[in-house]
């Protein structure tokens, strides 16, 4: 095995000290906010270009495991929303995109909010602990930090950074995230904590609550949650009661983090200033600017 030369050893020590300084500065406040913003903007442009070239290939590979499910979903939507489907089919040759837009439209109607459609152009840039995605819309389209992102019916995450043309979304399944939640069947309130790709863990506030497998869990009242209320978090797949009586339910996520493509940013408290059309509460598509 080789050994480091004196200069290499010195360089390693200096750079390690520099890295420690960066960590301290970034934890301490916004000293590096400008640097973060600049690099995110540059990388955002790079990701947008890459997505233009490699996006179709990625979406094809991502769609392979869900091919059967998507087909069934499309058929079901065709029967239920014949009028909407006809309108969408005229606008887009891409069936998958059409169904996603339809879901966003229904979501906007259901929530009574305006939604900016956005495409996922990149996933967490470095390693698996970064549960973020980059969207191709930013402050220029009315997106602000803290806004909720949905795929139409399910919660996807919330905006944590936004520049003029891109924004970064912290996924709801992020293991550090907790969201106020409600069991749609029983109305029980609780907290859903992200567990990465496997979904969420739901802990009801009332230990005697009757959470059952198959229950749908939604985002809870807005005062106790950073997300817009009424979005589906997922479905309970197993329930476990510990010896101290605490109930924990494992939840399969409604929006699979690995297959995100077209999503919508809910413009709560924001004004649509978009150059991009906004999906309104009356299912209309309107230009913002």
């Amino acid at each position: 095995m080789r050994r480091l030369t004196r200069r290499q050893r010195l360089a390693a020590i200096v750079l390690a000290a520099l890295a420690a300084c960066f960590i301290t500065l970034d934890l301490g406040g916004g000293s590096l906010a400008g640097a973060h913003s600049g690099v995110r903007g540059t990388l955002g442009a790079l990701y947008r270009g890459t997505d233009g070239v490699l996006g179709p290939l990625r979406r094809f590979v991502q769609g392979v495991p869900h091919a059967g499910t998507n087909e069934a979903k499309i058929h079901s939507l065709e029967h239920e929303n014949a009028a909407l489907r006809a309108q969408l089919a005229q606008r887009s040759a891409d069936r998958a995109t059409a169904s996603e837009l339809s879901a966003l439209r229904l979501g906007a109607q259901h929530l009574g909010q305006k939604v900016v459609p956005a495409r996922v152009i990149a996933f967490g840039p470095a390693q698996g602990f970064d549960w973020t995605v980059t969207l191709d819309v930013g402050t220029g389209s009315g997106v602000k930090i803290g806004m909720t992102v949905t795929d139409g019916a399910d919660v996807v995450g919330r905006v944590v950074n936004a520049d003029s043309s891109t924004s970064r979304v912290l996924l709801a399944v992020d293991p550090g995230s907790g969201v106020g939640a409600r069991d749609a069947r029983s109305g029980e309130l609780g907290v859903a904590t992200g567990t990465g790709a496997s979904g969420f863990t739901f802990v009801p506030l009332d230990p005697n609550s009757s959470v059952r497998v198959g229950d749908v869990v939604m985002t809870g009242p807005s005062s106790g949650s950073s997300f817009v209320p009424g979005l589906e978090i997922g479905t309970v797949r197993s329930v476990r009661t510990s010896t101290d009586g605490t109930v924990r339910a494992s939840i399969a996520p409604g929006a699979s983090p690995g297959s995100l493509d077209l999503v919508g940013v809910i413009l709560v408290g924001g004004t649509p200033v978009a150059s991009r059309p906004v999906i309104g509460t009356d299912s209309s598509l309107a230009g913002g600017r």
Binding site: A19, A35, G124
Partner: peptide
Amino acid sequence: LGSTHPAG
């Protein structure tokens, strides 16, 4: 710097 976690 392109991520959300602390730089370094």
